[in-house]
Design a protein around this nucleic acid. Structure first.
Lengths: 349, 349
DNA sequence: TTGAAAGCGCTACCAG
DNA sequence: CTGGTAGCGCTTTCAA
């Protein structure tokens, strides 16, 4: 029951060596003659010593052996969004390579999240967020440890990993035009820190503070503009990043604007909801209505019809972020490639 | 750049109080007169003090403020299996309620995993595994901290959360019988520490050391036995828990045993692969062939046809495990309910 | 309320 | 290679 009792000094005494040597036997075995080492291990086993105390070692060395991962925009996001999970998979893989654990900063609300950040024994932080004006991010910065930002630019970050979101969205828009769509709707991710789900007016569209939303919006508009379609000709709807919610929004939208024949969704999760909505309304995809997402999640292979998308490699994104956090060179920004993924929701294949 | 420079003592001196009082100002504000407290905070801000040093606090208090989660059977499992992710969601939710972070123990191989366990500053471990004879588990036990086991019985655990796997499988078997299936295949999860994927002979079936496999197997056999179907009349195939793999196994199996009209899969992931295989071979589900999984994952709603299953509440399973780890009462075993989920893969609905 | 001082257990340094 | 020892930064007695 009792916590850790016997300590290194006890072992050292029992083995007739100094504490320093005992420490080396565990931490740097090569520095200790094998004969002495065996004696130390024997004494340790004898006394029931469980190995160096983790927290004491941390304090002494200043290394936590863990990377903190934070999702300031949505604290439940880590284990609910498929893209976040791919990100974590990449992070986990790279951390494993380095013998480092992954700490998920978990909290119920932003205030708790700040405390969670302050209590986390980690060597660096990986932050996935949509914008950088955020108390949680400030709290992380105050810790003065390397901070890698994913999908946003954070001033002073030790590294940044991003997509070319503008290009990705432009690709999606161009593809729908190619497929013959002419009357468009954009299903946007949440545009600012405060949600305003539902139809977006021009003000709201312009107010997007989330970098990802701003860039993708501009990319869509760019693509459509080149076909003579102005932003004011486009229906904009802000959706929560859940298929159920986007399905509901899409139903309302399609009822009110039955002329829409092309839906540009800022995430595959949102796009999948749009497909559900289309099915519910009896709209034929891709004949009547074309739908394309962004992300290229695996679930998109199994939808009915399979979802076209602009894929990104989220696993690699996470891996790179972790690599930067664990590496030396600082201040770099990596921009990942994206690519068109044509499936049944835009074209009969 | 430099690490944390100014320390509590500096702040205390600057504010003209003792270190103890300064500590209290941060940790137990109520014990310090507000006037003094303000002076301390002012000094802190002045000197650029960033708040108590996490590792030092840990060493002193012995609390890590984090729960460790380990998947000894498959270290990549955490971020790839949908059931594991639900588990993590539940764990994350409960930890958030308690202001505790979640540490995922990550490693590339079992040996590294032992090091990862030993380096993890956590207050307790949550272990999801199929069987308990495992070096990683021994390493965790050596840490002498509360250990909650999920889906297996581990001797000496501070708590255990399980399903009634026997009943769950029996339910699945009985349902397929109800639906008219008469010639069965069981797609098993990996049965022992060492994989042996492919057709299982009676020896292999009997050798299952993984508790979940043993129980589910017995449950299936039980159900079918009552219809006069002996275990020897059943085709058994051991599958990796990936749809691609189970699809391949299922194709081979159905080619060799075209008479099969009922597939009992030990997980939904495996069952989804079986559906893919059936489609590939042009078998009509559910008319020609009925398929049922276990788990009730969300993805099963979107397969073609939607997947019948015996659902479990994995989120709640994780939440309960975390609750036990964070709570006081020790040694309990919780057995969660399961329930039949009828969808299109067994019955025209 | 506040102050003084004792460690938490270890690793890294320096001397031999 | 090995021994001695300082000190990582904090919280928490215990006394005043």
């Amino acid at each position: 029951m009792a916590a850790k009792r016997v300590k290194l000094l006890d072992v050292a005494k029992a083995a007739g060596v100094s504490q320093g040597t005992a420490s080396n036997a565990f931490g740097k075995p090569d520095l200790v003659r094998s004969e002495v080492r065996d004696r130390i291990f024997a004494a340790a086993k004898d006394l029931g010593y469980r190995g160096p105390h983790v927290m004491a070692r941390m304090l002494r060395t200043g290394k936590a052996g863990a990377l903190g991962v934070v999702f300031p925009d949505n604290l439940e996001y880590a284990f609910s969004d498929p893209v976040a999970i791919e990100l974590l998979r990449g992070i986990g893989r790279e951390c494993a390579r380095h013998g480092i654990n992954v700490m998920i900063i978990s909290a119920e609300n932003p205030q708790q999240a700040i405390a969670a950040v302050n209590n986390a024994a980690v060597d660096a932080f990986l932050v996935h967020c949509y914008s950088d004006n955020n108390d949680i991010i400030s709290a992380i910065q105050r810790r003065n440890q390397p901070l890698i930002s994913i999908d946003t630019d954070i001033a002073g970050a030790a590294g940044t990993v991003l997509l070319d979101d503008h290009a990705a969205a432009k690709t999606a828009g161009a593809h729908l035009l190619d497929c013959g769509a002419r009357k468009f709707a954009i299903l946007s991710l949440q545009a600012t820190e405060h949600d305003h789900f539902g139809p977006m007016n021009a003000n709201r569209v312009g107010a997007a503070s989330h970098r990802v939303v701003r860039e993708r919006m501009a990319g869509y508009h760019d693509a459509l503009q080149s076909a003579g379609i102005a932003p004011t000709d486009i229906i904009h709807v802000e959706c929560d990043n859940h298929s159920e919610h986007s399905a509901k929004m899409t139903v309302e939208m399609l009822v009110q604007h039955p002329e829409i024949d092309g839906i540009l969704a800022m995430s595959d999760v949102i796009a999948i909801g749009a497909l559900d909505a289309a099915r519910e309304l009896g709209r034929k995809v891709p004949d009547d209505l074309k739908v394309i997402g962004i992300d290229g999640i695996v679930a998109g292979e199994r939808t009915d019809p399979p979802l076209s998308s602009v894929r990104q490699d989220s696993v690699e994104k996470g891996r790179l972020a972790a690599e930067m956090a664990l590496g030396e060179d600082t201040g770099r920004t990596i921009i990942l490639e994206t690519g068109l993924l044509v499936r049944g929701s835009t074209k009969v294949v």
